[in-house]
Design a protein around this nucleic acid. Structure first.
Length: 434
DNA sequence: TCTGGGGTCCTAGGACCC
DNA sequence: TCTGGGGTCCTAGGACCC
């Protein structure tokens, strides 16, 4: 493609979407240089199915969601390296990557574990195609140098177009990982299939196609008002965004969480109440830790319990039950107690359960908790206890000190047979050099 | 034996009020 | 036989994201 001249623009803001290619697989490879060019797949919790693949693994035909037990022989045959997912490692690598982005701009929204939006306002600097491409390459190069992770950069004037640009950068190797999408680039928009547009799901696709909307350009050309009345306000925004009119801001200030979920499948199906109770206590404990880490307190707690939706021997059972606290809390003991109460409401004897989750809602700032007239006790003591507990677990490792309710046998725990070491967060996991 | 986990936003509909 | 209308708040569930 030929750009006749570097075109200056009067847009005052540019947005970059930077994401790490094959993030989980790439994280595993960083610490295992011997796996260069070796196909890698990373499995979901419980080693159930494939959730990440290296380029080599994609070329071998492995798909997201492939069942591990089905593809196991082929994995061995093709010499594909398999990992259980290691979120301690991925989360830490994610933090490092974002730290590097912050050298380029302070306007960062961490959108997901492997994607961030970066905002570049003019600030006197007039960006053009050439300088923006250079900026993208510089980000790519710096991240690669300091973390060993490969990233792609898409740059445009709205988040949705930055997503489009990122996709183009990723799909076309000749752009060398960076693509700047100028808002009036109709030819490129035409190339993007409607189901590849951010926010357009599989369900929505056929409905749009029925209206003759097959490409991103078709959607961009649609009447926003008609889209709103025929669909919803979210899709209307997409139309504007595709036309370079920004409706979605880069959220640089992390908004406080509105809910916290801790939910996991069991390592095997369980029917015994006591084991499920232990899992619930452990999940409630984890939820409490998350809550306190963000200085929040929960007004509501609910749990959901279900059997396997794929089971052939019994009907699918799924039930949730929740309570509202008299006063917002972040105390593990109270969370466990409430969670167990809820569990009793949904547990039926004789079923084989697959998964249980604890959900905290109605989150508020822990400082400003509304005191209830019904609870008159000294909360200073229990707060101090929680702080000591959190400090110990932070410095000596998770679960150094914990509540007896979560059990010690952990019969309910998920399978992670092929997990890699927590290279970056645990000294004890580093290989010993002799 | 075996199918992830954690989030947000929007909408519809019910309860309730004046 | 007639059976308002409009507003708010809350909840459940759907849809979507990575």
């Amino acid at each position: 493609m030929i750009f006749s001249q570097a075109k200056t623009s009067d847009h005052c803001q540019w947005i970059a979407l930077v994401d790490v290619n094959n993030f989980y697989a790439s994280c595993e490879r960083v610490f295992r240089p011997d796996l260069e060019n070796v196909p890698i797949v990373v499995l979901s919790n419980n080693d159930g199915c494939v959730i990440a693949r290296s380029e080599e693994a994609k070329r071998l035909g492995y798909k997201m969601g492939d069942l591990f037990h089905v593809i196991k022989p082929k994995l061995r045959q093709t010499g594909t390296k398999v990992f259980s997912s290691n979120y301690a490692l991925y989360g830490d690598m994610s933090d490092r990557v974002n730290e590097i982005y912050s050298r380029f701009t302070s306007g960062i929204e961490v959108y997901s574990i492997d994607e961030s939006f970066l905002r570049f306002s003019g600030g006197g600097v007039v960006h053009n195609l050439a300088t923006l491409t250079e900026l993208g390459q510089s980000i790519r190069q710096t991240v690669g140098q300091y973390t060993g992770l490969p990233v792609c950069v898409g740059i445009s004037t709205t988040k949705t177009l930055a997503k489009v640009a990122n996709r183009i950068a990723k799909k076309n190797s000749h752009y060398d990982g960076v693509f700047v999408f100028e808002p009036d680039n109709k030819a490129q928009l035409q190339q993007i299939s409607i189901d590849d547009v951010w926010g357009i799901s599989r369900r929505l696709t056929p409905k749009l196609q029925a209206l003759g909307i097959y490409s991103a350009l078709d959607l961009a050309s649609a009447d926003p008002k008609r889209i709103r009345s025929g669909f919803n306000v979210v899709l209307e925004r997409m139309v504007h965004e595709l036309n370079g009119i920004s409706c979605l801001a880069v959220e640089e200030v992390v908004p406080p969480r509105k809910s916290i979920i801790v939910s996991r499948g069991f390592g095997r199906y369980l029917s015994e109440f006591s084991l499920i109770q232990q899992a619930v206590a452990a999940h409630a404990t984890r939820a409490g830790e998350k809550l306190r880490k963000q200085q929040l307190a929960a007004n509501k707690l609910s749990i959901s319990l279900r059997t396997s939706p794929h089971g052939k021997d019994q009907v699918y059972y799924k039930k949730s039950f929740g309570i509202t606290f008299a006063e917002a809390t972040s105390e593990t003991a109270l969370l466990i107690k409430a969670a167990e109460h809820c569990l009793r409401k949904v547990y039926r004897k004789g079923l084989l359960y697959q998964k249980v989750g604890v959900f905290l809602g109605g989150l508020v700032d822990a400082q400003g908790v509304q005191q209830s007239i019904f609870t008159q006790k000294d909360v200073t003591k229990s707060k101090a206890l929680m702080r000591v507990l959190d400090d110990l677990n932070r410095s000596h490792g998770r679960d150094t000190v914990r509540f007896a309710a979560s059990g010690i046998d952990e019969d309910w725990k998920m399978r992670q047979k092929m997990i890699s070491p927590r290279y970056t967060t645990r000294w004890s996991d580093l290989p010993v050099v002799r």
